[in-house]
Amino acid sequence: MADEDLQPVFNIQRMYLKDLSLEQPNAPASLLEQGQPAVDINLTLAAQPVQEGIYEVAVTATVTTKVNDKVLFLIEAKQAGIFEIRNLPQEQLDGILGIVCPQMVYPYLRVIVSDMCTRAGFPPVLLTEVNFQAMFEAQQQARAEQAAGATQN
């Protein structure tokens, strides 16, 4: 094997919108509601192998906006990227998939959610910056605690 075959590889193959939905279940009545809307934002992250050395990383945002307990709108957007990642130890691969790739995908998701709100006739919802490293470390800690609890039982 040549030395270049063992060099770490990281390439972005493609960024794409995997799924997008908008619901306004109580329109038009909900559009006449007065009051400050409550916005609930839920983010999820998924990473999976597509083929040898190729991974899909997807970040999903679910945005639910209500006024007086009536849903104004619900947006679910899933932005994904395909990444070529080779010749890395598993612990580094986990960090790349859980931190680096989502950081690259997330700005696209932020734009899509904001744009969809505007197109639906509402002020844009601006997703805040996310510290994917802190999220990753919290998930690793929770897994470690769960594993420790399972071995004690």
Rank of each mutant, 00 (worst) to 15 (best):
L22D: 05
D40L: 08
E33H: 04
E33Y: 07
K18G: 02
E4H: 03
I41V: 15
Q24Y: 07
I12R: 03
A47Y: 05
V39M: 08
P28K: 11
P8R: 00
Q34N: 11
G35S: 12
I12H: 06
N26D: 13
S21T: 14
Y16I: 02
P28H: 11
N26F: 10
I41S: 10
L32F: 10
N26Y: 08
T44K: 09
L22P: 04
P49I: 01
L31Q: 13
D3E: 09
D5S: 13
A29F: 06
N42I: 06
L32T: 14
P37G: 11
A27P: 05
L6C: 00
R14F: 02
A27Q: 13
A38H: 05
P25D: 12
K18C: 07
A27L: 12
E33K: 13
E23A: 15
I12M: 11
N42Y: 13
I41M: 09
E23S: 13
E23L: 02
D3M: 03
P49F: 04
T44N: 15
L6K: 05
D19R: 03
I41D: 10
Q34G: 00
Q7A: 06
A47C: 09
S30T: 13
E23G: 07
Q13N: 12
L45M: 13
P49S: 11
G35V: 14
S21P: 03
D5V: 02
L31R: 11
A29L: 12
E33W: 02
Q34E: 14
Q7Y: 02
Y16H: 14
Q13K: 07
Q24I: 13
S30N: 15
D40V: 02
P28M: 08
N42T: 13
P8G: 04
L45E: 14
L32W: 01
A46F: 04
Q24P: 05
N11Q: 08
N42E: 08
L45W: 10
M15F: 15
Q7I: 02
A38Q: 15
P25F: 08
L32Q: 09
V39K: 05
D5Y: 05
L43R: 11
A46E: 15
S30A: 15
L6E: 04
L6T: 02
Q13F: 00
L45P: 01
K18S: 08
R14Y: 04
Q7P: 00
L22T: 07
F10R: 01
L43S: 12
E23W: 01
L20W: 10
P8C: 03
L32E: 12
L22Y: 12
D19S: 07
M15W: 07
I41C: 06
G35F: 03
L17N: 09
A29V: 15
Q7F: 02
P49M: 06
L43W: 06
R14G: 00
R14T: 03
N26P: 01
L17T: 01
L32I: 14
L31T: 09
A29W: 04
S21E: 06
K18I: 09
A27H: 07
A46Q: 14
N42M: 11
P25R: 09
L22R: 01
S21L: 07
L43T: 04
F10P: 05
R14D: 13
Q34P: 02
K18N: 09
T44H: 07
P37R: 06
L17F: 08
A29R: 14
R14H: 10
L32A: 14
L45F: 07
